[in-house]
Design a protein around this nucleic acid. Sequence first.
DNA 1: GATGAATGAGGCTTCATTCAT
DNA 2: CATGAATGAAGCCTCATTCAT
Lengths: 226, 226, 226, 226
Amino acid sequence: MKQHRYPVEKDQASPSRSALRRQREREQRLQTILDAAGTLFAREGYHRTGMERIADKAEVSVGTVYFYFKNKEDLLVKLLDQTGYELRNLLGTAFKNADGTLEGLRKAGKVFFEDFCPNHPEKIALIFRESAGQSEVVEAHRKKIFDKLIADLQTALLSVAANLGAFRSRLAAEVMAASILGMFERLAYHYLIWQDRQEDLEAVGRDAVDFIVGGVQNLLHTKQKS
Amino acid sequence: MKQHRYPVEKDQASPSRSALRRQREREQRLQTILDAAGTLFAREGYHRTGMERIADKAEVSVGTVYFYFKNKEDLLVKLLDQTGYELRNLLGTAFKNADGTLEGLRKAGKVFFEDFCPNHPEKIALIFRESAGQSEVVEAHRKKIFDKLIADLQTALLSVAANLGAFRSRLAAEVMAASILGMFERLAYHYLIWQDRQEDLEAVGRDAVDFIVGGVQNLLHTKQKS
Amino acid sequence: MKQHRYPVEKDQASPSRSALRRQREREQRLQTILDAAGTLFAREGYHRTGMERIADKAEVSVGTVYFYFKNKEDLLVKLLDQTGYELRNLLGTAFKNADGTLEGLRKAGKVFFEDFCPNHPEKIALIFRESAGQSEVVEAHRKKIFDKLIADLQTALLSVAANLGAFRSRLAAEVMAASILGMFERLAYHYLIWQDRQEDLEAVGRDAVDFIVGGVQNLLHTKQKS
Amino acid sequence: MKQHRYPVEKDQASPSRSALRRQREREQRLQTILDAAGTLFAREGYHRTGMERIADKAEVSVGTVYFYFKNKEDLLVKLLDQTGYELRNLLGTAFKNADGTLEGLRKAGKVFFEDFCPNHPEKIALIFRESAGQSEVVEAHRKKIFDKLIADLQTALLSVAANLGAFRSRLAAEVMAASILGMFERLAYHYLIWQDRQEDLEAVGRDAVDFIVGGVQNLLHTKQKS
DNA sequence: GATGAATGAGGCTTCATTCAT
DNA sequence: CATGAATGAAGCCTCATTCAT
């Protein structure tokens, strides 16, 4: 069954020029469709967006959408995965540039609120709203993405702890990681989607990071008072 | 066209006994339907739950559901409002019993993670998943609920600040309020819905509260005690 | 899940008059739809008949068709079963009126070619053409129907043998039963569907029966020469 | 518009060697596609088999299939014709080798049940199931094939009658011919497709032939020997 | 008030066929 | 000749909502 073949590298040693071009065009078209779907899902909602609308916006036929994607759900899953990957990359890079100190978290907050949010509000809507509770498959991907983000944050927190003293409780790192994600989620949604206060995002990010830093320090052993 | 009359109090000075009984039965039935819908929405998802399914579970006919609720969306909105009201009450009570100190936040965290979460996991699913991005009307209600919860938290934080010194930034209180809500949301969802770790909820709540306390202190100008 | 409820007897001791009427109307409507589908399937072919056409012909909406039948396949299966049941009844009755002799077969042939064929050509098309190879489920029902018809014929043949002497081979009865069914099938199809020679049906039936009688006798022990 | 040229013999007096090779390759490819389609139609059903599936199995592209065949229906028609031709040849040969006596029918039965059936079950499925009621064009070809088979059988029966005495009725020969075809059809389908009793096929064929012989004799005016 | 049969617009998906490369 | 991406009409089915009884 040769169905829904995603671009595969040719086995040939040197693919012909035209083959390369076709390959490129294929990926472009796939991304065009994905973008169209992403925009519409964020703007109109997953359920209220019909496949025909997506095809129209991507300037292809319905059949073409189905040539590149198994079904509507597949479209959402791919979009979700792409966004999750992007987000992880973004935060992961921030952590790497300042490992072992709280500087990593500061950078991550800054890049999230000052870069990601204003530039990709539709991805915020997608990952934090449209992908919620749509189907078992989508939910599974969502869980995986969130789990990975939490794991990354947890790792960053543990490397901080390695420098500044252990955490006071068994779950502290995991709880903080999930908390930080929750904060980012609700703050972005609150200031970007519900209220349109892009101009406040920088300040929000600063306060959020300070809040996080205070919270993290309070869960370290070296600190005494609570 | 038939109007959707919701149960209204009789204007009579002293309603007859049978009128009272009817009134009570009416409210009971309404709540039965609401409960059925809530359970199904949380378990199967809003869109995958048909009106007939709800009627069946409530042991009434489809027509009856439409007698009590304008439409399916109305069902979700009512459910959402009810849950929001409950949550606000719960947290508001916690704040009142220890106003002006961080003790209010501690109590709120405790009651949320140790009472609300384990007893109403379906309400967590409803308010944090099923009500997300279903329609403009639902989203508006959702926004209102979240705004109120944030406002409540903000008020509580400001009364803390009144005791312990002002916050360092204009937005601090609002940001912290939204952050706390986001934390509760993601933590509850993470530990209750995605993983089934009810037994950890207490510890999670403790760490979350400590995290919050640290965060709040870090955003105060003067920070001595809690 | 209270879906696709077929008319069920009320549990009440004495169903109200209106309930009885509704029940009757329900069965009538179900049959109306079934008839519409049967006619169209036979005339246009199962695959070339859309659900909308069926609904139109039955003067109901598409939704109503789906209220009474699970899906298009269900429609075909019910039709097939009904036809199979009818056919079995018809032949079975013929056998009963003359058990133990070849007279049963004669009667069965007569009733098939002179009653069933001219009166229900669309059922011939349905059972011998449209139901062939449409899906696993349909094929299973088809097999069951044919198996039963063959079993009935076999029983009749064996009761003949009980009178006139055993068959010469282990499989003889089964083979003859299937053969007779095949004969009826192809003859009906040939003279009724492909050529429109209703006027010949009677003669065809007579010859067919004589052929069968000769065949049966030739497989009995009592006869010597082959 | 492109025309669908079927491989035609070159008009040249002596085609070049390479032309010959090309011609051969063309026919091979055509047959490969036909075989792929035949297998899939028999196994999965005509409607449930997509053109892409056929192309895959034949290891060519969809476009290539359309180069050799006008459309999907054409594929089925060609397959059907091929099978019909094969079957006629088979039976015709049997008749020729023993003309004028019932021996021809015996041979035909033997070759059908002992050669054709076990070796080409997929062709049984194709001619007796998949080609039924698919479209007017297919049905027309099917009718033509059956008509020819019946005509052949009728001829054989009449040559028997010429030896042994006339048939008792005007339609007898035609009825018997159609009957025999129906018997073969249903028996093959019953024992080969529905039940997998290849091992019984020989015995089935013997009984069937005896049945036929008895039947034929019973329709002759004078009946002595076979 | 309650019932549940009926509605029909709208949604997703398939697949035979075409045609530029 | 061969390819396979693109097309889009057509099909099946769901389900929120209505309304006569």
